[in-house]
């Protein structure tokens, strides 16, 4: 479903020298699978999520991004979104004055138009919003507020998963969705993500810690260090990392 081939990327600096962050990432996530990427701070995990989503602050210098058989490397962020790529942000952005449901309905319909589908009607959309909000324990008062404005870190993460439920993407990238969540919130968010698991949907879960994976039960775990995938294994790999740390990969930078 998603195939990352020998991906090299660097930061597009405002000035000065470009800094290479991804140095040959190879990764395949078939439909229906959940893959986790773990790694120490600064290994390039978040950069990978931004590059996948098409952030123009990064320049792809080599390699390819293939999604459902098509090279999406040259597509704008909104075109990737319309193809079904969704990024749950590590730091969700506040958009003052724009109610969450207005934002999501605009987004859903923009995606639908890009795919040549009919737009969703307001009553259908609101009905769906109520159902999804209930799954995540989101109050109707929260839905009326502007996008992410005044929410705690945990509430913001919950809203990211709510957005994913509303937009029903084909592929989810969760960038440190567990950070800032207490154990109860983590459970709710994980249940939301699990509800999205399906045979035709793929997921890439970026995290530091094992605890989110306890709930999500990934099919494959990758270890990233110094801009590359350095080890790939089953769910057990996450447990090993949790007990031994990332020290043994420190040499990978050389």
């Amino acid at each position: 479903m998603l195939e990352i081939k020998n991906l090299h990327a660097r930061v597009n600096p405002e000035e000065g020298e470009a800094l290479a962050i991804l140095k040959g990432v190879d990764l395949k996530v078939p439909a229906g699978e959940v893959h986790a990427i773990m790694g120490p701070n600064g290994c390039g995990k978040s950069t990978l999520s931004y590059v996948l989503a098409g952030h123009d602050g990064y320049e792809v210098t080599d390699g390819a991004l293939v999604f459902e058989g098509a090279d999406i490397g040259a597509l704008a962020p909104e075109e990737r979104a319309a193809r079904g790529l969704f990024l749950s942000f590590q730091y969700p952005v506040e958009i003052p004055g724009v109610p969450t449901l207005t934002f999501l309905k605009e987004a859903a319909n923009a995606q639908r138009r890009a795919r040549g589908e009919a737009e969703v009607s307001a009553p259908d959309f609101i009905k769906l919003a109520r159902e999804n909000a209930a799954k995540l324990g989101i109050s109707s008062e929260m839905l009326k507020r502007p996008v992410n404005v005044g929410f705690s870190g945990g509430e913001k993460k919950r809203m990211e998963i709510f957005q994913a439920l509303m937009l029903a993407p084909k592929f989810l990238i969760l960038d440190e969705t567990d950070s800032g969540l207490d154990i109860d919130a983590l459970k709710v968010v994980a249940e939301g993500v699990n509800a999205l698991r399906s045979p035709d949907r793929g997921m890439l879960v970026i995290t530091h810690y094992q605890r989110l994976l306890d709930y999500l039960k990934p099919d494959v775990v990758h270890v990233m260090a110094a801009g590359r995938i350095v080890e790939t294994g089953g769910p057990d790999l996450a447990l090993t990392l949790e007990s031994q740390g990332y020290e043994k990969y420190a040499g990978a930078a050389a």
């Binding site: 909104e78 990737r80 990024l87 952005v93 958009i95 890009a114």
Partner: peptide, 24 residues
């Protein structure tokens, strides 16, 4: 950041700007 966030959700740049400005 706001612009990228809105575009990641599927809004093209001009619609995203319009939405942010409308919010403002």
């Amino acid at each position: 950041d706001q612009l990228f966030y809105a575009r990641q959700r599927g809004l093209d740049e001009e619609t995203a700007v319009a939405l942010l400005v409308n919010g403002f």
